[in-house]
Amino acid sequence: MIIKRVLTLLAAGTAIVAFSGTANAQSDEPFRLIVTHLEVPLVPNSVMDLAVELGYFEREGVDVELVRVQQTPSALAALQSGEGDMANVGIDALLQVINSGATDFRAVTSPNKSLPFLIASREEIATPQDLVGASFGVGRVGSLDHSLSTLVLASMDVDIEDTELVNLGQPNVRAQALAAGQIDATTMSIGTWAELPDTTGLHVLIDQDAYYEAAPVVNKVNAVPGNVLEDRPEDVEAVIRALVKISRDFAADPQLWVDAMSDALPQTDVAVLEMLADAFAESWSVNGGMSAAELSYTSDWLYATPDFSEIAPLELQDWVDFGPLDAVLAELGTEDAMDPADR
């Protein structure tokens, strides 16, 4: 059971809808939202699952059905074949599929724009400058964690090439190597950090907020094909509105997220959830997660990588449609504390 105060909030929200008439159902057909996780994730992307469980979509008058696949390529394939109406996908794959012919696909919102990466190290590494000459674990040279950390450290006047790079593969392997004293520092998600059984002698050298500020690369967006934008615009806006509202509620009261996640993942230690809620304090997409500056930075960065060396760059308007989100923000207003709504 979800705790009493969450139920009270939901009941109040339902009453507001009943009297204000803000529910804008356009179709009786389910709106199929494709996600690339098999259970509720321990990151802000959880808003998509929790918006179903806590009735946010229902109160906006849209019947959202989650379609679960394992990776972005499967999500985009499902979207192309008409098995879904919106998909949460990596920007890199979205740009590639548009280049391959799906020219009407557009990003319309981002419920969790950033990877919650941080750099953890031995306590003796007190500042980023202390990484010079130290061993630094990466997935591989050229991997996402290596590329982003190169940008982050460069912004702090540290050249990652001045460290001893150690190729170790997956984040959990790198985290275990750090805990075992086999390396001096590495990049990992805050979830991986939280799952380490013992962090004695270790600390977070660069937290996830500082990491994203130094390298504002947007990881994932919710994309829709052109026929959905044309045929179900009110449903698209209703989905976005629900995601903005739940993000704002969690930002205003992180305990709501802790309580909802405890119900969704009862096996997860509440102390871990509370730590994550505190870490996500500035990460919620309270304005839809679609900063034009950050999206442009992301595409510019991607087009400079080897994977995109043969691909002609797209202009922002060729893969982003701000219209549905801007319509929602015109109604709800913007929150200025986080998540820039620049255009």
Score class of each variant (00 low, 15 high):
residue 92 D to C: 06
residue 110 S to I: 03
residue 112 N to Q: 12
residue 126 A to F: 04
residue 127 T to N: 07
residue 127 T to Q: 10
residue 108 V to E: 00
residue 119 I to R: 09
residue 99 N to H: 15
residue 114 S to K: 13
residue 98 I to L: 00
residue 108 V to F: 02
residue 123 E to T: 14
residue 107 A to E: 02
residue 101 G to K: 06
residue 129 Q to L: 08
residue 94 L to C: 06
residue 93 A to D: 15
residue 122 R to L: 08
residue 116 P to R: 07
residue 99 N to W: 13
residue 102 A to D: 11
residue 92 D to Q: 14
residue 120 A to C: 07
residue 98 I to R: 10
residue 115 L to N: 15
residue 108 V to M: 01
residue 128 P to M: 03
residue 101 G to M: 05
residue 122 R to W: 01
residue 121 S to A: 15
residue 116 P to V: 03
residue 91 I to V: 14
residue 126 A to E: 15
residue 126 A to D: 10
residue 103 T to C: 02
residue 129 Q to K: 13
residue 96 Q to V: 05
residue 106 R to V: 09
residue 126 A to G: 09
residue 120 A to G: 12
residue 128 P to F: 05
residue 96 Q to R: 13
residue 122 R to M: 05
residue 123 E to I: 12
residue 119 I to W: 11
residue 124 E to C: 05
residue 124 E to Q: 13
residue 106 R to P: 03
residue 93 A to I: 13
residue 92 D to Y: 10
residue 100 S to N: 15
residue 98 I to N: 01
residue 106 R to S: 04
residue 97 V to F: 11
residue 128 P to N: 03
residue 125 I to Q: 05
residue 116 P to I: 03
residue 113 K to P: 15
residue 95 L to G: 01
residue 128 P to S: 05
residue 118 L to H: 08
residue 124 E to G: 04
residue 110 S to D: 02
residue 124 E to P: 04
residue 114 S to T: 12
residue 128 P to L: 06
residue 120 A to I: 06
residue 105 F to W: 10
residue 119 I to N: 11
residue 105 F to Q: 00
residue 97 V to E: 12
residue 118 L to D: 07
residue 103 T to I: 10
residue 102 A to I: 06
residue 128 P to T: 09
residue 114 S to Q: 12
residue 116 P to S: 08
residue 127 T to I: 08
residue 103 T to E: 12
residue 103 T to D: 11
residue 105 F to A: 00
residue 122 R to S: 06
residue 124 E to L: 07
residue 93 A to W: 15
residue 91 I to C: 01
residue 102 A to Y: 13
residue 97 V to C: 07
residue 108 V to C: 00
residue 92 D to P: 13
residue 119 I to Q: 08
residue 98 I to G: 01
residue 118 L to F: 08
residue 109 T to S: 10
residue 123 E to M: 11
residue 91 I to M: 02
residue 125 I to M: 12
residue 100 S to M: 14
residue 118 L to W: 06
residue 126 A to Q: 14
